[in-house]
């Protein structure tokens, strides 16, 4: 295999990895602040694609108006989910809130089947995102080229928000100690809400690009990406945003390379790759690549 083809696969892998990274951040942020695996995150991702579908196809609104609205709608959906399904259980045992998350996931999936129908729908692909760009020896779908750029822009914005703004500082403080954060005058509930909003907005951005890249949408489409991105977050070290990004890229590039370089008989194991990687990481580094050591609070 030539170097050019390797580069071709690498860019594809980075592109897929970017999508995984965007979704994985939502898992890791929510885990960081609530110590909760938000199992409904993949379904929020799915909802975003339907919002876009109805906006563009059914209501015929141009994509550049629909997409920002979809991001806002999805953020509100995530925040509503937190208020309805997780906030009442804030002081309940961890297992209760986890079961609530699984319930929320099933609820969204089945609601989608009832409201949107179980049949696949075609995601709208505006012309701007179709076509091919030639980068030296590598020829790429325009979208494959755009995805990592868009992702990096949002990542930089996110890291700025978290590390250099008052809201970000509040988020970091709440993630360590809810009670003391409250004593400092931080509105803990609002901060948690914002975290869900941001995580869901990033999932929406990922979902829109996912829909453009794989333009088939269906109610259970969030399950597999949701699981994989959860794995990406764990591999990177759950609770750590940079870790989630790293995990996303490892998973994306690894998956594409596996498909590219293994004999075609084995490409069916594509999805298994993520899970095998998860098992290996958990065996040798249970806290993930960039995860902190878990220390019990005294």
């Amino acid at each position: 295999m030539s170097f050019d083809i390797f580069l071709q696969h690498l860019t594809n892998g980075i592109s897929l990895g970017s999508l995984y990274a965007l979704i994985a951040i939502g898992y890791t942020m929510v885990y960081g602040i609530l110590r909760l695996i938000n199992f409904a995150h993949g379904d929020i991702f799915m909802m975003a694609t339907y919002f876009a579908f109805y906006g563009v196809i059914t209501f015929g609104v141009p994509w550049y108006i629909v997409f920002p609205i979809v991001i806002l709608l999805t953020a509100s959906l995530g925040m509503t989910l937190e208020v309805a399904a997780y906030r009442p259980l804030r002081n309940a045992p961890k297992i209760s809130i986890m079961i609530s998350a699984i319930g929320a996931s099933f609820l969204l999936e089945n609601l989608a089947i009832v409201i949107f129908g179980g049949v696949n729908k075609a995601f709208p692909t505006p012309e701007v995102f179709t076509g091919v760009v030639q980068l030296g020896p590598v020829s790429l779908q325009k979208l494959t080229f755009y995805i990592p750029i868009i992702t990096v822009i949002f990542l930089v914005a996110l890291l700025y928000l978290i590390n250099h703004t008052k809201t970000g500082m509040a988020m970091r403080a709440v993630s360590k100690d809810h009670e003391t954060a409250g004593v400092m005058g931080i509105d803990v509930n609002k901060t948690i809400s914002i975290t869900f909003g941001i995580g869901s907005a990033l999932a929406a951005i990922g979902a829109l690009m996912w829909g453009l890249k794989f333009p088939q949408i269906y109610p259970l489409m969030g399950v597999m990406p949701g699981l994989k991105c959860f794995i990406a977050a764990v591999i990177g070290g759950i609770g750590n945003i940079k870790g989630a990004v790293l995990g996303g890229f490892i998973l994306g590039v690894g998956e594409i390379m596996l498909v590219a370089f293994l004999p075609s008989d084995y490409t069916g194991y594509r999805d298994a790759f993520a899970f095998i990687l998860l098992i290996v990481v958990l065996l040798f580094r249970p806290t993930g690549i960039m995860g902190e050591k878990i220390s019990e609070k005294v």
Binding site: S175, K176, V298
Partner: peptide, 24 residues
């Protein structure tokens, strides 16, 4: 009053065991 409003009223607490934010 809620806890988060105490500090606005001029009441501040140095909690037991310090409770500084280690990641800040």
């Amino acid at each position: 009053e809620k806890t988060q409003n105490m500090v606005r009223n001029g009441i501040a607490l140095v909690p037991e065991g310090r409770r500084v934010f280690p990641n800040l």
